[in-house]
Design a protein around this nucleic acid. Structure first.
Length: 419
RNA sequence: GGAAGCGUGCCUGAGUGGUUGAAAGGGCUUGUCUUGAAAACAAGUAGAUCAGAAAUGGUCUCGAAGGUUCGAAUCCUUCCGCUUCCGCCA
C-alpha cells in the first residue's frame, strides 16, 4: 500500500514516480479526491455518532419519550451516512490496489526490460569447439528433464526434473542454506497457501497480479507464487525491537504461477513453468538500513552464482519492468550459451514500507516511536540455475560437468546420461 | 468428517444489554526512599483513524464479518482460530 500521507502532501511527486512504472497518474488524482471526500464524510459521521453516544448516555440514566424518538432519528441518520461512507471507503480501497510502490528517484527510467541498466558482467563465458545444445534438448537426451510425460500427466509448462537434475536441486538448496546460515538467517519452510486478505496486504493481488495466481475455490485460498508471500507476513501486526533488526529468514517453497499472458514465451523446456521450487531470502530492517541490506542480499546472490562458476550479469531493473511492490530491483541473469542470451535467474527487491504497511509490521525507535519496517526479498536459488549449469557445462561428448560446489551433494562430477 | 468446549489489553483473569476502553493481580516505565540493589509507597502504561499549528478532542476496536436494539464484550447468524475426545492420515 502506498503512503496516503505522501499523496496528501505531494501528489505531483507520487504521480510522476508512479507514471514511470506505467501506472496511470490520473489514478493518483482520483485517489486524492476520493480521500478528501472520505475524510469529510468521516468527520460528519463521527460527529453524528458523538451526538448519538451522548443521547444514549442520557437514556441510560432515564428514559423519556422525547429522548427515545431523538435517538431513533439519530440512528436512522447514522445508518444513512454510514452507507455513503462505506461506498467511499470501498472506492478508496480499490484505488489503493491500483497504485504500485513508488520507485526511488535514482532508479533508471525505462519502459521495459530492454532498458534495464547492466551493472556488471561476471565470470567467463564458456567457449565451445562444437555447437552447444540448448539445455532442454540436452536435458532430455540425458534423462534429466521430461516435459513430454509432464504434458500428458499435467499439462503444458510442467516438467519432471529427474536423476542428477533432481539431485542438483537438493544440492542447490543445501548450498544456499549453508551460505546463509552464518549470516544469521533463520531457516523456514513456509505454507504454500495463503488467505486472500493477507495476500492483498502483501500487495500481491494488486494490479494485474491476481491473474497470475492460482485460487482454490473450495477453500478460498491462493497458492503462493513465491515463499516471499508467506514469509513476509511472519511478523504481521507485530512491533519488533530495533536491536533485533535486521531480521533475516531463508525459506524453501514450491512456487505456483499461472504465467498468464506469456503464451508465446519460452514454450520449449522448463524455463517458464507453472510450478517450481525456490529458496528465498527475506529481510526485515529499518528504513535507514534497507539500501545497505539490499546490497548485502545482492552480494549473497552473487556469491552463490560464483560458487556455481556460472557466467552472469547484474542488472538494475528499470521503472517500467520493476515489480509492483518494489522501490528498487536488481536481477541476476545467467548466461545461456546455446541461446546466446542472458536469462533471469534471480531477483532482489527492496519493497521499502509498501508491504510493511499492508501487513502492519513495525519497529520501535530509540524514542519509543513505532515506525514501519522495510522489507526485502531476494532469490537464493530457483530451478533455473540448474538449466544454466546444463547448458554452460556441456562437453563435446554430450556429458555435463557438475560444478565443484555441488559435486559432493550430487555424489559425482559428471552427468553421463542413461547408459 | 463427528462430538464438546473456548477466543477479553504485554500476561493471568473479572465482566451476560446502559458512564466498561474495559475490575483485580502480575509485568513494564518513571519517581520517592537507599551508598547501590531489593522491598515498600506513588504515578504512568493499547492501537488505528479523523480534525487541529499544537494543547486537545471525536470516532472505531473485547477472534472476524454481519444482524437485533435508542444502546452490545455481553443476545442472534455466519466464518476463522485454538483445546479435548472419536474417525482418518504422512
Amino acid at each position: 500500500m502506498v503512503d496516503i500521507q505522501l499523496i496528501r502532501e505531494n501528489p505531483e511527486m507520487v504521480k510522476e514516480a508512479v507514471a514511470k512504472k506505467k501506472c496511470d497518474p490520473k489514478l493518483v488524482d482520483k485517489l486524492f479526491r476520493i480521500d478528501e471526500e472520505w475524510r469529510a464524510k468521516t468527520v460528519a459521521l463521527d460527529q453524528l455518532k458523538a451526538d448519538q453516544n451522548l443521547v444514549n448516555k442520557e437514556l441510560a440514566r432515564g428514559q423519556t419519550e422525547e429522548l427515545l424518538s431523538k435517538a431513533q432519528i439519530l440512528k436512522k441518520r447514522v445508518s444513512e451516512l454510514e452507507e455513503e461512507y462505506t461506498k467511499l471507503e470501498h472506492k478508496r480501497k480499490e484505488l489503493f490496489e491500483k497504485i504500485p510502490n513508488v520507485p526511488f528517484v535514482n532508479v533508471p527510467v525505462g519502459k521495459d526490460e530492454t532498458e534495464n541498466k547492466i551493472l556488471r558482467e561476471v565470470g567467463k563465458k564458456p567457449e565451445f569447439d562444437f555447437t552447444p545444445k540448448e539445455y532442454f534438448s540436452l536435458g532430455e537426451e540425458l534423462g534429466l528433464i521430461n516435459t513430454k510425460k509432464a504434458g500428458e500427466i499435467t499439462g503444458s509448462r510442467f516438467g519432471y526434473l529427474m536423476r542428477e537434475a533432481a539431485l542438483m536441486e537438493f544440492a542447490l538448496v543445501r548450498l544456499a542454506y549453508d551460505v546463509a546460515l552464518p549470516h544469521g538467517f533463520i531457516p523456514v519452510i513456509p505454507p504454500v497457501m495463503i488467505r486472500g486478505e493477507v495476500y492483498e496486504e502483501m500487495g500481491r493481488l494488486a494490479g494485474d497480479q491476481k491473474e497470475e495466481r492460482y485460487h482454490l475455490g473450495k477453500d478460498d485460498l491462493y497458492l503462493i507464487g513465491s515463499a516471499e508471500h508467506t514469509m513476509g507476513p511472519l511478523h504481521r501486526g507485530e512491533v519488533l525491537e530495533k536491536e533485533s533488526l535486521p531480521r533475516r529468514y531463508i525459506g524453501f517453497s514450491t512456487c505456483f504461477r499461472r504465467e498468464a499472458g506469456t503464451y508465446g514465451k519460452d514454450t520449449k523446456g522448463i524455463l517458464r513453468v507453472h510450478q517450481f521450487d525456490k529458496v528465498e531470502f527475506f529481510s526485515f530492517t529499518t528504513p535507514e538500513k534497507s539500501e545497505e541490506e539490499h546490497q548485502f542480499l545482492l552480494s549473497l546472490q552473487e556469491e552463490l552464482m560464483q560458487k556455481l562458476e556460472l557466467p552472469y550479469r547484474v542488472v538494475e531493473v528499470c521503472t517500467g519492468d520493476m515489480g509492483w511492490t518494489d522501490a528498487r530491483q536488481y536481477d541476476i541473469e545467467a548466461w545461456f550459451p546455446a541461446e546466446g542470451k542472458y536469462r533471469e535467474t534471480h531477483s532482489c527487491s527492496n519493497t521499502t514500507d509498501f508491504q510493511a504497511r499492508g501487513v502492519n509490521t513495525k519497529y520501535k525507535t530509540e524514542k519509543g516511536k513505532k515506525e514501519l519496517v522495510h522489507m526485502l526479498n531476494a532469490t537464493a536459488f530457483s530451478q533455473r540455475p540448474i538449466l544454466a549449469i546444463i547448458e554452460n557445462n556441456q562437453t563435446k561428448d554430450g556429458t555435463v560437468k557438475i560444478p565443484k560446489a555441488l559435486q559432493e551433494f550430487v555424489g559425482k562430477k559428471e552427468i553421463q546420461g542413461i547408459q
